[in-house]
Amino acid sequence: MLPTNFKIAIASGKGGTGKTLVATNLFHSLSKAGIPATLADCDAEAPNAKLFFKSKEESTSVVTQKVPVIDESKCTYCGKCHDWCNYHAIFFLPQPQVIKVMEELCHGCGACLAACHFEAITEKEVELGVVTTYTLPNSNILAEARMHTGVYSPVPLIKAGIKAAGDHRMVIMDAPPGTSCPFIQTVARADYVVLVTEPTPFGLSDLKQSVETLREMKKPIGVIINRAGMGNRNVYEYLKQENIPLLMEIPFERSIAAVYARGGLIAESDKQWEQLFLGLLDKIKIQWK
């Protein structure tokens, strides 16, 4: 058996390969089977999983970051905070004396606060986004991290979203696209990573990069090929060569695309898909041992 708090990240090297399709349908199928689970939508720049479920808003929490506030009456214009800020977020001129925090560049690291010997710096909280949890009719939970526009990084939101998903039940994470920081922060918290790709040269190239990254992180992985039937066979050959399990194929069919486009779930409209998605757990189980 998989641990009850098993965490599965659904990821893809680039967006639009169908990772949300997989995450939402897997979550739906788990719910139908009575498995307590949470879907954590970690794609904080474009969270869309909620579209697919009838749900009731349970709670929201604002995610904030600290930024410094400089009291110019106490500031001696020594410039140390400016020197210590590695993100160039403090604009400083000794003559004429100018000091200004550029909040949009600040990462809230606290270095300036530690630097100032004149108690001229205090901190305030600024909003980065919100984490909202929703309950579904079957009492499973959806936790959505949503970044405000203009914020430099979704990472604090992602962390808060996964935290809100909790550690007591199975968690399905819809990971952000790419292999940079937001992706790493998500998969770092997963026990298993499902990579969704499509059988095209672009898909393969992105898949390879994700695989390399996840192998370095020593995460067990499996692959789902979406839009199977288009493109070519190179992805299949790559999987065989690298000994990566092919967990599932979702054929390229207009009807599947149409259900998804309208915010529907193929596992709901077609019971066969429900069984197939549930079957994923068995395949993951084998690898987990």
């Binding site: 680039k14 639009g16 720049e45 474009a46 970044m147 430099y152 979704p154 952000p176 696209p177 790419g178």
Partner: peptide, 8 residues
């Protein structure tokens, strides 16, 4: 050819 998302 820009990246996905709306971030930095």
């Amino acid at each position: 050819d820009g990246p996905p998302g709306i971030g930095c």
